[in-house]
Design a binder for these strands. Structure first.
Lengths: 238, 238
DNA sequence: TCAAAAGTGTTGACTTTACACCCATGA
DNA sequence: TCATGGGTGTAAAGTCAACACTTTTGA
């Protein structure tokens, strides 16, 4: 609590910042996908000796010339080849011991992508989809980060039209309900679920039918254009 | 996307980190108080020439040997002299141009304190309480940070017993209702409000009465011990 | 004709809102 | 005696949860 009352210039203050330029900042992306009625997350085998054999989230250090969102999008683009994905900041983890090679503070984002749309890219370097429910341990504090992001996702799904990023453009209400059940890890009543979704007004009826299903085909729906969105709901005050 | 498949040691990776050790990280605290039926926030006159005349939130660079929460608590302790305050991380702001003296990424916390309990400390260095509703402009991106934190506070108040940190230990239901009205910026029906609060079961009836009020005194209540909490609700999965 | 899922409404329980009167106190 | 807020209940509207049968398709 120094008491110099005169104004500092930004240039002067910069000098004192230098003392603190030894903390690195990274982003970590919890990239969710959905396949075979299971919520998945994209993980890579850790390349750190300390975590040999463990998987970790996809992340990278933030570069001096990019903001946090850009860094997250870069990680996503590099790893999945996808642009225009849904991405939302969740929490920043800054514990002292969280990275063995030094002080690294990381900002966690979760992302929702249609697992079918990336496929081709990078099945090399031990990049794989893992069922969220099967994950017991991850490198660093990544299990905590995953849990935190999953928790946030669950909080959002009923109030915001986000999960559609996990589905192909056209989908049936059954597929949508299965997805909700996977995310929330509960069973939902079919009639009540359909009513609830109908009331939200998120969907447009395509007047098309499923095909190649071994039972009565259902109608296909799509998310209304106005609800397509990469980022989170914009904050509304008042 | 290099393809070296051999494991790096943490020591080796550290070298590549050095390239990125030129981003500083700070915390900024949105310290809310409540007085005279208004929600207040603690601000300090900016000591940067670039923002001469503007106020800013209280923040500081994160030191290499402290985690983010510790840094926030340090800021709070230094500025208000209070320990054991309620503190919750809200969002991390990492835009490129947000700080004139260089790249500074900041993690925002909001805090709730009983405005009566700090008083003494630091009325020097242009530290003052400002009515949240009157704030039009702040230094840096601090207006955005304030708005984001206010929004988060509003989302939390009805579901979590947090606002009691803004009140003295003993309070009447009228005081509590006034506080909610200030935060939410709406009028609430008295009977419905009391019912809603009663159902939550957060309060204990102290069997004491207000005094020194120029009207019929009301009963005094306190938050039940089990709901006292410094941090946010712990995340509950499953 | 069977198996699988589509599609569709109603009832009761509960929650939320709107609303008005008498009471206790200090000035 | 007046002004101020304390304290209280009910009815109507809306929301939520539980629940079953008929239909369509492919195998």
């Amino acid at each position: 609590m120094s008491k110099e009352q005169n104004l500092k210039t930004a240039a002067l203050e910069k000098i004192s910042h230098l003392d603190y330029f030894n903390i690195a900042i990274s982003v970590d992306c919890v990239i969710f996908g959905y396949d075979n009625k299971e919520l998945k997350v994209l993980l890579i085998k850790s390349d750190l000796e300390e975590f040999s054999g463990l998987y970790s989230l996809l992340g990278d250090l933030v570069r001096p010339d990019e903001d946090l969102e850009s860094a997250s999008y870069r990680v996503l683009r590099d790893r999945t080849g996808m642009e225009d994905v849904y991405l939302e900041q969740v929490h920043t983890f800054g514990g002292l011991g969280r990275h063995p090679s030094g002080r690294v503070i990381t900002t966690a984002y979760y992302s929702l992508i249609d697992i079918k749309h990336h496929k081709l890219k990078l099945n090399h370097n031990d990049l794989h989809w893992h069922s969220v429910n099967d994950i017991k341990e991850l490198a660093f504090d990544h299990k905590t980060i995953l849990d935190t992001c999953l928790c946030r996702l669950r909080e959002q799904v009923m109030d915001h039209p986000v999960v559609f990023n996990l589905l192909p453009e056209k989908f049936s209400l059954r597929e949508l309900q299965d997805l909700y059940q996977s995310i929330l890890d509960t069973d939902l009543d079919r009639r009540n679920f359909r009513k609830k979704i109908a009331i939200k007004g998120w969907l447009v009826d395509l007047n098309e039918m499923e095909n190649n299903v071994p039972h009565r085909p259902g109608k296909l729906y799509a998310l209304k254009k106005q609800h397509h969105r990469k980022g989170p709901k914009t904050l509304v005050l008042e």
